[in-house]
């Protein structure tokens, strides 16, 4: 059992791959031995439900389409946001309802770790089999540094 589970959610559709890219960079930056597990997945995060339920802290990284500027970074605490039905509504993730519905199922079943955060970046183009845009790539680097600081440099509540 890892203390922290980081799930990078994505596909190979342009900026939709940002979750995978961020995960790769975090893995390289953090390295082994930090009780942090890195898992690349698609929208079917319930495939990882056992890993999720056995972790003390969950970090999800995904493209989030929220009518913002491409490259904008978002952070949501999943328990408070989803329970309150406030900021996260409907299918903000580029994967539609899949990820959030899956998270809601995990909350209902008591399987979501108390500390569960969704980090996201507003995507630009998401054409099949295309590269991630340079604009979003810059945000990925900032996001990686922010998550690194929160998990490794200055960990809080863990």
């Amino acid at each position: 059992m890892s203390r922290v589970l980081i799930l990078g959610i994505g596909s190979d559709h342009g900026d939709d791959s940002l979750g995978w890219e961020a995960l790769r960079r975090l893995r390289k930056k953090i390295g082994n031995g930090q009780e942090i597990e890195f898992v690349e997945c698609d929208a079917s995060i319930l495939n990882c439900n056992e890993k999720i339920s056995q972790s003390a802290k969950l970090v999800l990284i995904d493209a989030i389409a929220n009518n913002g500027e491409a490259g904008e970074i978002y952070r949501f605490d999943l328990h408070s946001e989803l329970s309150a039905h406030t900021r996260i509504k409907g299918s903000m993730s580029s994967h539609g309802l899949n990820v959030l519905d899956s998270v809601r199922v995990l909350i209902v079943l008591g399987l979501l770790p108390k500390e569960s955060t969704l980090w996201g970046i507003e995507p630009g183009p998401m054409e099949p089999n295309t590269e991630i845009s340079s604009r979003v790539l810059k945000s990925v680097e900032r996001l990686v540094q922010t998550i690194f600081d929160e998990l490794v440099v200055n960990p809080v509540n863990s």
Binding site: L46, N47, N49, E50, D101, R104, V105, I107, V108, L109
Partner: peptide
């Protein structure tokens, strides 16, 4: 939705997730 169903049928959904996990 699935989350609504999970509230009323948690054991069935947990059983389903266990079966799914074994497949994985």
């Amino acid at each position: 939705s699935a989350p609504e169903m999970a509230k009323d049928h948690p054991l069935a959904v947990k059983r389903g997730l266990r079966i799914q996990a074994l497949g994985n």
